[in-house]
């Protein structure tokens, strides 16, 4: 025998409500199905397509893609010129990440520990606005700044420091004709563009360091630098790692910045872009794109073990 209903059902909406109540899984499925289908089909499907393409190869004479499984395309990555691209990209990503961490730390530390009230807002907006404002416009601004006739040359002239600028540009390997065609230029723009991605997680981690812990450290006789080395820095580490995920990954995949500022030396992103575009070699482009995926998955795995995701 069923119990009498207290309220009369008012149609489909009430019937569904009762169903959701009795079977929460049904509601969960309805909520999750559309986004998971989208991400599963559009995103994971595409990643699978990428992986598939990387196992195809291109016929060197006709330029037609041969749709059969081969490791030939991956073997091509090991050619000297392609290995160069990979190593150059990894080196740049590492240096950019370390520099970002160095510049970001004082900003994040001040914002987390000392900024109060209005200054807190200034620091927050001061980091968030550059983070979100147009990527391309920021890169363009640097092209104007670094140009041979641009503001840096002018400032160096005005301060009678042209000698220094020229000496820096004369350094073989990283110098060049002007800053906008040098390795230093590319590096500067990378650091500028990705810096906010490092500051925010770092700040989040530093904000969670309890003041009582710093007081305890001082009470136990630690000097400022000892407190920094043994208390603050280790606790900030998950934030630094979380930030480095972004700076490293974004530098590794970028193909706009090296195209606009710097030498014509290629990076992984630029290689992918050119191979799929003008060269029409989608398999090799796909194989190149798999490298950052593998590196990032490894990086994410290690970061997760260090507890970096709690700082995101």
């Amino acid at each position: 025998m069923t119990a009498p209903a207290i309220l009369h059902s008012r149609g489909l909406a009430d019937w569904l409500t009762a169903l959701f109540w009795r079977r929460p899984r049904v509601l969960l499925t309805i909520l999750l199905a559309p986004p998971l289908l989208w991400l599963g089909v559009v995103y994971l499907g595409s990643l699978a397509a990428l992986l598939l393409q990387s196992f195809y190869s291109i016929d060197e004479f006709s330029g037609v893609i041969k749709e059969e499984f081969t490791l030939k395309t991956y073997a091509e990555l090991l050619r000297a010129q392609n290995l160069d691209i990979i190593l150059r990209t990894l080196l740049m990503s590492t240096i950019v990440t370390l520099s970002c961490a160095l510049i970001a730390f004082p900003i994040a530390y001040y914002a987390a520990r000392f900024a109060k009230g209005r200054w807190k807002t200034v620091f927050y907006l001061g980091v968030m606005l550059p983070l979100w404002s147009s990527y391309l416009v920021k890169v363009y601004a640097w092209k104007l700044i670094l140009a041979k006739e641009g503001i840096i040359t002018w400032t160096a002239d005005a301060l009678h420091l042209s000698m220094v600028l020229n000496a820096i540009l004369a350094i073989p390997g990283i110098g060049g004709n002007s800053l906008s065609t040098s390795w230093i230029g590319t590096f500067l723009v990378f650091v500028y563009i990705w810096l906010p991605y490092m500051i925010l997680p770092m700040q989040a981690a530093l904000e969670r360091v309890p003041t009582s812990m710093l007081e305890a450290s001082a009470d136990l006789g630690a000097s400022r630098s000892q407190t920094f080395r043994t208390v603050i820095f280790p606790l900030a580490m998950p934030g630094i790692i979380a930030g480095s995920i972004f700076t490293f990954s974004l530098t590794m995949g970028d193909y706009i910045i090296p195209q606009i500022v710097g030498t014509s030396a290629r990076f992984i992103g630029l290689a992918v872009y050119q191979l799929q575009g003008t060269a029409g070699n989608i398999p090799l482009a796909a194989a190149f794109a798999v490298i950052p995926i593998v590196i990032m998955l490894l990086y994410l795995y290690l970061a997760k073990r260090q507890g970096a995701f709690d700082a995101l």
Partner: peptide, 27 residues
């Protein structure tokens, strides 16, 4: 796993998302 899946499109470099979509459209 789902939270990782949502995060992945911005955690991986844009060139990968772009190249993946390009491969899928091509196939």
């Amino acid at each position: 796993q789902i939270s990782l899946l949502i995060l992945l499109p911005i955690a991986l470099p844009g060139v990968i998302t772009g190249m993946s979509l390009r491969s899928a459209f091509s196939i």
